[in-house]
Every structure is written in C-alpha cells, then in structure tokens.
C-alpha cells in the first residue's frame, strides 16, 4: 500500500518535472532570442567600424553613415505622429464615447482592418495612388507657403517625398494608437463621468475633465508604441520615398533623407562584404532606438496598470 503510494507519487513528480521543465525552457528560449538579436547584430555589425567610404555610399565612417539615416528615420516618424496622434485620439473617442453602442464595435473592427493590411500593400498604394494625388498639393504648398523652410521646394513631380512617406506611416501607426487609447478611455471610472455630467458638464467637458486626466499616461504610451511602429516600418518607406541620403527639413522636394529601415531594404540585396556589416550596424542602431522607445512605453503602461489595481 505504502509502496504503491510512493511510486505513484514519484511518477507524478517525474511527469510534472518534465512538463514544467519544458515550459521553463520555452520561456528561456524567448529571453535567449531577444538577447541573441542584440548579440548577433553586435557581432556582425562591429566589423563595420573599419569600413571605408566605398562600402558606406561615400560616408567617411560608420557614424557619418548612420547620422543622416537616423535623422531621416526620426523626421519621418515625427511627421507620422504629428498627423496620427490627434486623429487617433479622435477615433478612439468616437469608438469609446461618441458612437452609439451598437455600432461602436464594428467601427473598432474597421479601424483594426487598417492594421491588418500588409505594409507592402501600403507601399504599393502610396507610390501608385497617394503620391500622384499629392503632387498638386505640393505645388500649391510651394507657391503659397514656400517661405517656410519645410515647403521650400522645388516640389517633387512624382510625389515621392518624405511627407508622403510620413502620411503613409501615420496611417500605419494610427490603428495601434487608437487601439490602446480606446481601451484606456473605456476604463475611465463611470462614476467620474456621471459625476461630471450631473454637475451640468457637456459631453466634451466631461471628456476633458474626467476622461483625459485619467487616460493621460495611457495616451503617452500609446503614442510611443505608435512611434516604435513608425520607426521600424520598412517597406512602405522604401517604396514611397525617393531617397538621396541628405539632411534637410524640406518636406516636399525629390531630394529626401532616407530612413534606416528603408535603406537596409534597398541596399541589402546588392550589398557584399563590409557593406553587409555596415547595414547590420545600422540595424543595430534601429533596434536599440525602438527597444528603448518600446521599453519606456511598456514601463509606463505597466506602472499605470499597477496604480489602477
């Protein structure tokens, strides 16, 4: 009796040990993969420190090579966020507070569809449809507000400008900002909202006084996650942008700064030797930047969640 009991117990323990060990290994694999990304990119990127101008498209050193690319990446993302943030907050408000409840779910689904469209299709749409449509707008901007450095021109005749790329990126960043903002808006305590309304606030005043203060950090982290998406987006920019690797704030000309991701996609298939290492080094920089942005955003979300619990 006792012996069967003990053997049963040990058998159980063995099965449990194997199973829990397997799950633990799977978890470790993820940590290893993440560490692997950093390690392998560093390993393959380091040799680029010795790369000469012929492998760096004319730049003197790897730092001079990455600088303009990083500038282009940040510029395109900044344009994208300037456009996407107000829109996304508006859309999230419609879904969480303004739309009739019966339709708000399908409205949310429609916005989620924007996220489901593959990036290469956005690129195709941007270059094949949006760009040509924007040419008259750019010409108008050049003629009427050309005194602003952003619209100095000469206006691109193909629409392949960094502003077009920024607009496409804004469309791609919009769903993620909307998704997180609307979750947070919907979590606003009902009592706060009803209290505001009971004091005679209009709906907008209720949103401003009860919803926004509650959701502020959530919106910040949502925008940062959108930034992460815009920073790393490759194909749409690679297809839409006509890049020449210069540093300029001129948004509508056909000479544009390139972005890190787009530059890798364009150069990698033809790159050899140290050129590959240089591209991997730029990829490492991109990884570090997006990791930092996402890390901060998630840390804010985590802190907020803890505070609300």
């Amino acid at each position: 009796m006792t012996t069967t009991a003990t053997t049963g117990k040990t058998r159980q323990r063995k099965g449990d040990l194997i199973f829990s060990g397997a799950t633990r290994i799977a978890g470790l694999t993820i940590l290893l993969a993440l560490a692997g990304v950093a390690i392998f990119l560093t390993l393959e990127g380091l040799p680029a420190l010795e790369a000469g101008p012929e492998k760096l498209q004319g730049a003197d050193s790897i730092v001079a090579y990455i600088g303009p690319l990083l500038f282009g990446t940040l510029l395109a993302s900044a344009i994208a966020l300037l456009i996407a943030t107000p829109l996304a907050v508006g859309v999230a408000l419609v879904i969480s507070h303004y739309a009739p409840r019966r339709v708000s779910k399908s409205l949310g689904y429609a916005i989620d569809l924007l996220a489901a469209v593959p990036s290469v299709v956005y690129g195709l749409w941007g270059i094949g449809f949006l760009g040509p449509q924007l040419v008259p707008v750019y010409e108008w901007l050049e003629q009427n507000v050309g005194w602003l450095p952003f619209f100095a021109g000469p206006a691109s005749s193909t629409g392949k400008t960094i502003l077009t790329a920024g607009i496409v990126l804004a469309i791609m960043a919009l769903p993620i900002i909307t998704a997180i903002s609307r979750e947070i808006f919907a979590q606003t305590p009902t009592l706060h909202q009803e209290a505001a309304l009971a004091l005679g606030a209009t709906r907008w005043e209720m949103v401003r006084l009860a919803v926004f203060p509650y959701a502020r950090s959530g919106i910040v982290s949502a925008v940062m996650l959108g930034l992460g998406r815009a920073l790393g987006e490759t194909m749409a920019v690679a297809m839409v942008l006509s890049a020449s690797g210069i540093v300029t704030f001129n948004l509508i000309s056909s000479d544009n700064p390139s972005t890190i991701a787009a530059n890798i996609a364009l150069m990698f298939p033809e790159a050899t030797g140290l050129g590959v290492n240089a591209l991997i080094a730029t990829g490492l920089v991109l990884f570090v930047v997006t990791f930092a942005v996402n890390f901060t955003a998630r840390a804010i979300v985590a802190r907020t969640e803890k505070g609300n619990r």
């Binding site: 993440l34 692997g36 990304v37 990791f291």
Partner: peptide, 19 residues
C-alpha cells in the same frame, strides 16, 4: 520583454536571422 518584443521592427528580425 514579450510586450517589448511585439515592437521589434521586422527588418531587425530579418537581420537577426541573417546574422
């Protein structure tokens, strides 16, 4: 880290696989 990983740029994943 899984949350952070959802934000890895796809091109970086490609470079990782290549490296």
């Amino acid at each position: 880290l899984v949350d952070v990983m959802t934000g890895i740029p796809s091109i970086v994943a490609g470079l990782f696989a290549y490296a």
